[in-house]
Computed example of a mutant assay.
Amino acid sequence: MFGDMMGMMGKLKEAQEKVEATKKRLDTVYLQEESSDGLLSVSISANRVIKEIKLDESLLQDKEQLEDYLILTLNTAIEKATKVNETELAAVAKEGMPNIPGMDSLFK
């Protein structure tokens, strides 16, 4: 019984290490989001860190329009990055979990 517990603890530690490695890798995964007319583009990491914002000069003429573009485009980029982040981390966590009855439903 004690050996089983030690093996399970080892697997949990290994899973945690894989999750941390995946988090670091997601820092290097970039997603691009662009407004429907191409006047604004955003680059964001899968860990939801904005890396770059590019905008067309014409957006500088209207503050309210620029704010609207930023809100819409940033929210879409963050939503996409969150999906990638959650999918990747859930896959790694599920892979490393020991087979405990009832636990598999947590990662669906």
Rank of each mutant, 00 (worst) to 15 (best):
D104R: 09
I44Y: 04
T76Q: 11
S105E: 10
P101W: 09
K23M: 07
E67R: 07
I100N: 12
L74V: 08
E79H: 15
E52P: 00
S36P: 08
T28C: 09
V84C: 05
D68M: 06
M103V: 14
T82L: 10
L106V: 02
Q16W: 11
E14M: 11
K13F: 12
M8D: 11
M8E: 11
K63Q: 13
T87Q: 13
D62K: 00
D104G: 10
A93H: 06
T22S: 15
Y69V: 00
V42K: 01
L106D: 08
N47Q: 14
L70M: 10
A93G: 04
M9D: 09
D27A: 09
V19L: 04
K108V: 14
E64W: 08
F107L: 07
L39F: 12
S43T: 09
A90F: 14
K51W: 05
V92D: 02
G102I: 02
T28H: 15
M6T: 09
E14D: 12
L31R: 12
L55E: 04
V19P: 01
D68G: 04
V19E: 01
E52I: 02
S58C: 08
L66I: 06
G38C: 08
V84Q: 00
G96R: 01
R48W: 00
Q61A: 10
S41T: 03
K18N: 10
Y30L: 15
